[in-house]
């Protein structure tokens, strides 16, 4: 694979984002930083899935141009001209779910702070007996 192609760059960025987010979530002690790490890893996962459906040289799966049809008479689309729309549909919903889950985590963080007056995860070790 050519290292200076868009595809390689996007895969590389996605993997680095996932690893950085995961490392942040595992190593940091501030609860908000942990949630932030999850959020960054989320972006990375989404980027990776979209990149898997991208085929270089093809256009977006929005058929607003008759040139993308197989022949002028019918409405059959030429499948060799557009990228894979399925991962995009998946990621579209995954982003919205992501913000919902992030908001739920943040709500727990705010509630924990209100009761423990701390954002340090080591202060919430009651399960660690």
């Amino acid at each position: 694979m050519n290292l200076l192609s868009l595809h390689a760059l996007a895969v590389g960025t996605a993997i680095v984002l996932i690893l950085v987010g995961l490392a942040g979530a595992l190593v940091r002690r501030n609860l908000l930083k942990i949630v932030l790490g999850f959020s960054i890893a989320d972006s990375g996962v989404n980027l990776l899935i979209v990149t898997l459906g991208h085929i270089p040289g093809r256009t977006a799966p929005i058929i607003d141009d008759p040139k993308l049809l197989k022949d002028a008479g019918s409405l059959v689309v030429d499948a060799s001209k557009v990228v894979d729309p399925l991962p995009q549909a998946l990621v579209l919903t995954a982003i919205v779910i992501g913000v919902g889950v992030t908001a739920l985590m943040l709500a727990f963080v705010v509630r924990l702070y209100a009761q423990g007056k701390s954002l340090d995860i080591r202060d919430f070790g009651r399960l660690k007996w």
């Binding site: 929005i62 058929i63 059959v76 689309v77």
Partner: peptide, 19 residues
Amino acid sequence: YVEQGLVENRGANLVTSIV
């Protein structure tokens, strides 16, 4: 989905058709 999307749904945006 790509080839029959317009025939079956008439939606120009295939991502929307799938979602």
